[in-house]
Design a protein around this nucleic acid. Structure first.
Lengths: 348, 348
DNA sequence: TTGAAAGCGCTACCAC
DNA sequence: GTGGTAGCGCTTTCAA
């Protein structure tokens, strides 16, 4: 049987109330008593029962974290960031993975909310109304998604995307494709929208291809459509898709960047290592996780923090070998594209 | 305020005991009552309070999972496997990452054990005696490590390593290096030991280099030592190290596999995508996680399962471009190496 | 300054 | 079959 405050109380000759107070760090009691209690706790090997404490206080000391797919290094980094910040504040993290499945996501979000002090959600497939309803029950921070009334951390991709477009335009590309991620994904819509804006401003054509799943396999699936689209450059929803595409194009003997240039999003490790290495709009993934957890902590400490602050770490383009001059172009011409008015995307 | 069984009891006109029983699925009560209770629970939006249940039953329905580093895709996959199996059984997973730090690992293991029904540990840096002591307090499964008396899931690398050595020998390599991982790591010792055995049997020389941290940076750090070692092939502790090495050798203009062949362990995604692609002893990572969680469930259901069953999914060599003929060798000679007596490694 | 006691929500034992 | 009730270990009034 585990040691309880009762045991300590008996050993020291005080009541359980006093023990509880002493251990809680109250300074309304004689330093002597307090020391004796702490010492007894130490000697007996006492460890507070977090479950009992939770039942009594209503706070568990746990937070929930939901991500679509741990095998995506981007989310692994986000989890790492959340976990690191949670560890600093003494919180434990319930992690759940949804396999990029909307049904699973819905179930898990719902169950998670009931048993923690707060949640950090990377839930691209759950409806806004549902999220708002859940956010009323527990402190909630959204990652990579904006929902009115819910605090969030989203990456500011405007600048990174403008840089990417400017880069491609400077290389002579005039017609490019976007390989879209999940249709319902906020990030996907945001990227598409920013991309349209930046490209319209730069005066180049955007071909939008069908949505693919946000994994390596999705990129492979997109290859044929890209070839049919008659573009010289493609921006992929994320690095996994870009890598799949790169792989499939290689298998078909299509030169990258000789015939087609590729840009991804995220800057996961493999993007740096493949050849040609992937030009990508790097996301501050671990920072997104850490900032999300940090925001949640502030929210839990003071619910009046609502309405919703929203953090936006900035993404920047990382230029590598997968982008090069457009096949038909004479010379790389022009510098970075001019000022682009930032049309509001995704209802910001 | 949340809905409790009291509310349901009042609404239906029965006692809380009856409600509790009905919701627990007891069939000793009139189907009618039971249906009315379930319906009321539904209408009122009842959700059991897991904390209260845990305090009363002593079971939380949660399990702990500790891994050294989520940024290593190998561990991300292990986590995914554990999580998937846990989800099936209705358990929630506390995840913690230790940043490959022994001190953090010790703290976290200890704190974790106190608040869950069981733990799955990937804890290469905690002492055996300490682990055994903790294993007496709670059901525990070790991953990638054998500790007498504790159930475990370890990958059987003997065959994969014999295949790797046979492969290299067939390519004409006669002197190779092992880039060791953390000295205290069980996996590192196991791999080194199996490698020594296999190489002794094949009659080739093994140069053991200093230990490096099991990350990309560790591989980069190992490059110079490898070049000084005068070997034509190297086996790295894991793929991240192998990738770092590959990268650093490339930066120094050393041809792979032209001048040096490289073999890793794990078969993480980047290993497949770099060029040359990495020859590696593929680990069934997600399966290790899933099997570990499965074993834990069996252990929690029946503690008499001890003493310790140990599962061993098998690793197999995946041959890719990072291995080729040894520089001095005429032709690839010989087939796979002959039968190798499997000297007991790591006190199995 | 300290202690007694009432709960937190649920389960499970023991009567009826 | 059903209900009363005693906890699970801790926190937190409220009194003294």
């Amino acid at each position: 049987m585990a040691v309880t405050i009762k045991d300590i109380a008996r050993a020291v000759g005080v009541s359980t109330s006093t023990v509880s107070r002493a251990l809680a760090g109250s300074d309304l009691l004689p330093p002597g008593t307090r020391r004796r209690i702490e010492q007894a706790a130490d000697e007996l090997g006492y460890h507070p029962n977090r479950v009992a404490r939770a039942l009594s206080t209503g706070r568990t000391g746990n937070v929930g974290l939901l991500v679509p797919d741990l095998l995506n290094p981007y989310f692994a980094a986000v989890v790492k960031g959340v976990q690191a910040r949670a560890r600093e504040s003494g919180h434990w993290v319930f992690l759940t993975d949804t396999d990029e499945d909307a049904g699973v996501e819905a179930d898990r979000v719902h169950a998670l909310v009931k048993q923690v002090d707060g949640v950090v959600l990377c839930a691209p497939r759950t409806s806004e109304s549902r999220l708002r309803a859940l956010a009323r029950e527990t402190p909630m921070v959204m990652l990579n998604r904006r929902v009115a009334g819910i605090p969030s951390v989203t990456t500011a991709n405007g600048e990174g995307i403008r840089q990417a477009v400017a880069h491609l335009v400077a290389l002579g590309h005039e017609r490019l494709a976007y390989v879209a991620g999940p249709r319902a994904s906020w990030s996907n819509r945001d990227r598409l929208c920013l991309l349209r804006t930046a490209m319209a401003a730069a005066g180049v054509d955007l071909v939008e291809t069908a949505n693919v799943e946000p994994r390596f396999a999705g990129g492979i699936a997109a290859a044929d459509r890209i070839l049919e689209a008659g573009v010289t450059a493609v921006v992929a929803y994320n690095d996994l898709v870009a890598l799949g595409l790169l792989d499939a194009l290689g298998a078909r003997g299509v030169a990258v960047p000789g015939r087609i240039s590729i840009v991804g999003f995220d800057d996961i490790l493999p993007a740096e290592l493949v050849s040609p290495a992937l030009t990508t709009v790097g996301q501050p993934s671990e920072e997104v996780g850490r900032a999300g957890m940090d925001l949640l902590l502030r929210l839990m400490a003071d619910p009046r923090l609502l309405p919703a602050p929203a953090l936006e770490p900035v993404a920047r383009l990382v230029v590598r070998g997968s982008t090069g001059p457009a096949p038909g172009s004479r010379l790389p011409h022009g510098g970075p594209a001019g000022e682009t008015r930032d049309l509001r995307c995704n209802a910001r």
